[in-house]
Amino acid sequence: MKLAEFIISPILAFIIGIFLMGLSRRIMARIHRRYGPPLMQPVIDLVKLFSQRTVSHGPIFDIGVILSLAGTIALILFIPFGGMCPLEASGGLLVILYIMLFAPLGLALSGGEGANPNISIGISRKFILSLGYEVPFILIVLAVMTYYHTISAVDVVKAQSSFHWALFSLPLFLPGLAYILIIPAMLGIRPFDLASAPQEISSGPMAEYGGKYLALAEIEHAFSIFITIALFVDMFLGGSGNVVYFFLKVLVVFIIGLLINAVFPRFRTEQAVKFLWKWPSVMALAGLVIVLAI
């Protein structure tokens, strides 16, 4: 049973992530009064990309992109998801916080060997943005861990069983809202798509990618969408023992986030950092203070 989870959870996460990617393009299109591509478009793209030949700039160019996706897949195993958490006793939320590093670092290393000026600019922006959203994110995770007095993600989910959702508890309400505000920054989607701005710096770190490199990066993005939102569901919406319920919770959060962010233009780098260090951080900090005071 446990062994099956190691295979099932990444595959489910992949399917959900790809579905959300397709869905987001549809919803965006409808907001823009377009028809939009079919729901299966990301899958079609992947098949196309994997069949194309492309160029490489060297060994680290290859290793980086593999590392980025491998780290993200490994991360799935640490996240409680529909009653499954294959690696629950391996370091908890602190490890999750760190394994989330694999993806940006892998892409940065890979892009770095590409020696394209757009890549350097994109990487610099990506790291600055991550410095921006990590402030509220760390505060949020700390508030949750301090409130439940554990560093284990599974224990956090357990403590919220029978509808004691953290989002609707007094101390963790503000951190929950702050998390919703930083989701687009963590995913690098609008209004925080400054690192991969296609019109400005030709997709930044991914400027040199084509074919299988782009495909792996896209898969990584699909996983990240799922992970970022699943972490929110686990920490604030009580997770779920059932895969279907879990998926529904993820879907609701995703669509809310999408509706809010579909209409915003892109931030400049400094604006993004200043925004992230202001509102979400203050909210998360207030939550942490309330947690300590109680």
């Binding site: 290859d62 490994a74 690696l87 757009n118 030709s202 400027a207 040199e208 495909a215």
Partner: peptide, 30 residues
């Protein structure tokens, strides 16, 4: 966990068509 994921991704990477090595000046700038 990371080793196994690495192997899986590496196998996918190897299964796709091999890429062509290019020099550093040969890059995309829109």
């Amino acid at each position: 966990a990371i080793l196994v994921s690495w192997i899986v991704v590496w196998l996918i990477f190897k299964a796709a068509p091999t890429s062509l090595r290019v020099e550093q000046d040969n890059n995309y700038a829109a």
